[in-house]
Design a protein around this nucleic acid. Sequence first.
DNA 1: CTGAAAGCGCTAACAC
DNA 2: GTGTTAGCGCTTTCAG
Lengths: 344, 344
Amino acid sequence: MPDGTRVQLTDVAQAAGVSLATVDRVLHGRGGVRARTVAHVQAVVERLGYRPDPAAARLARKRHTRVVFVLPSGTNTFVDMLERQVRSVGAWLGEQRATALVQRADVFSPAALARQLGALHGRCDAAVVMGADHPLVRAAIDDLVDSGIVVVTLVSDVPASKRSRFVGIDNVAAGRTAASLLGRFVGARAGRVGVVMGSRGLRDHAERLFGFEQVITGEYPQLQLLPPLEGHDLSKRTEPLVSKLLQAEPELVGLYSIGAGNRGIQAALERSGRAGDIVWVCHELTPHARQALVNGVAAAVINQDAGHEVRSACRLALAARSGERVLPEQERIRIDIFLRDNLP
Amino acid sequence: MPDGTRVQLTDVAQAAGVSLATVDRVLHGRGGVRARTVAHVQAVVERLGYRPDPAAARLARKRHTRVVFVLPSGTNTFVDMLERQVRSVGAWLGEQRATALVQRADVFSPAALARQLGALHGRCDAAVVMGADHPLVRAAIDDLVDSGIVVVTLVSDVPASKRSRFVGIDNVAAGRTAASLLGRFVGARAGRVGVVMGSRGLRDHAERLFGFEQVITGEYPQLQLLPPLEGHDLSKRTEPLVSKLLQAEPELVGLYSIGAGNRGIQAALERSGRAGDIVWVCHELTPHARQALVNGVAAAVINQDAGHEVRSACRLALAARSGERVLPEQERIRIDIFLRDNLP
DNA sequence: CTGAAAGCGCTAACAC
DNA sequence: GTGTTAGCGCTTTCAG
């Protein structure tokens, strides 16, 4: 901040010896400007440390910024929570001259997801994508970015892509957290620990498993980790898997559920009569998980705040387009731990 | 929303049969308007469901909104973190046409705090106050509010006052959370549990103690709660207190530290050679608490996010003045639980 | 007590 | 390729 007064567009235009419109074109990459002029203006912007006034920009903007959320189809409660959150920020987004919209896509089919992303060209200004990390998906994201669409990944990252940001938690750390909690809650008892995941193919699940194994094998030698079961995030499939596990393993002292399908797991635990005795840790504070916590069936729930994630994705998507300031600390999604006592 | 288009100031003015300026005066309580006109305009605003456009309002506003944070003086690390956060949102506030400033006050002297609050009249538009809940303080807050200053309480509430909002956590729930964590971490071992607090006079400390006692006595009968020690939030005083406690109580299995002075507690625990063996739970993720967690001296840290609190207080203070929308979910401060594995 | 009118800093037509 | 200019919806003088 060279002097007391904020530097604004007119200052840049004057210093660069061009008009407001030209500066605006450069700043928004609208094209139709000589390469030399572009470079020159950019240099001046840089030198003067120009930052657009977000209030003025929003006020003047005619068209709404259209942001599309692409979420997994299916019956996942957490995804429904995300969708509800998108709806509930509608009015707030309206005030920022933006509109959000949810589309569902089959995440288990990368080709379908990629096709759906491809269809977004020209139909939105920003896309928030929750999907599997697959070469087809990555390519589709890169295409969107190349055509000027801002892409933010949500919950599960596609790190090799050109997405501008990832909104979600560090899943390795989340797995470690689950393990520490489970290990300490089990206490001195020795025994076996089961793991149920959606699929090894899902990046976030694999990462959580990795972190969980690290801590259990490294720090709780009295606990023996059983091979993970894959329940495809469906209660219909997790319930029989866990029932069978409970029968086969009388020594089971802990259970970690990495993905969805928790209603099935809860049912199996309750039916076995060993609920509360087996330390069960799961993810995402859905209404069912909440109830399991209150009933003492679940010992702890690791959560990522759906509302925070949606707001954060929106802010980052808008900021990427408008040059508005982002507060990194505000956008960091916490690994929330919920016990019966600190439920919101 | 009666029709597709947003209702704006001109609509209200037209419907009320007055000018823009008059509507503005009414909306901002600037006075100089006949009581009948005021009532009429307010009715129209209500009927039409008018909401000001925040971008336009901010752009047009000439004067910056001045918000003053009044924080406890002394050497409390958490308070320093709050102050640092205030500093770090300066640029962001600038974009909203606001300026924040920190003052320190002696919280242990209600009279001094009240006097300092009194001195704020005419020197700011909003005050964010962290202070003891005392009749003098309450009266000072009410005076500020009566003179048109927005008051937000921070961390420790003054519920009987006219403050417009409280930003902080539910401290009873925080105490319960600490107890559950401590109880489960101790496991099957029976023994005694110590408590160190700043003072019984501090509302937040008393509430935490209440929640903690509830859970320990109700759910962990094998744990015997010792009478709380008061260390005035100073390491100089907590260290000898805890040292003495450790000598007197060979059966000590858990320790809950409700307030500050954690460096002293950590030192005492480490010197005793029983660190890690005694389950120690404390509050606020200061650098020291963080280190204690990493070293395994502290089992868990309950936290309220200083950055979140400061941003939230600012948003609420500004929104109260401008009629801007607040997202209640976004302003809820979480009771964060940190283990070694989910540190930010 | 009330109204008219000049901006706030940027965007986006439209003109050159 | 580049410049001019009319707003965006509110706040705030300054007249009446």
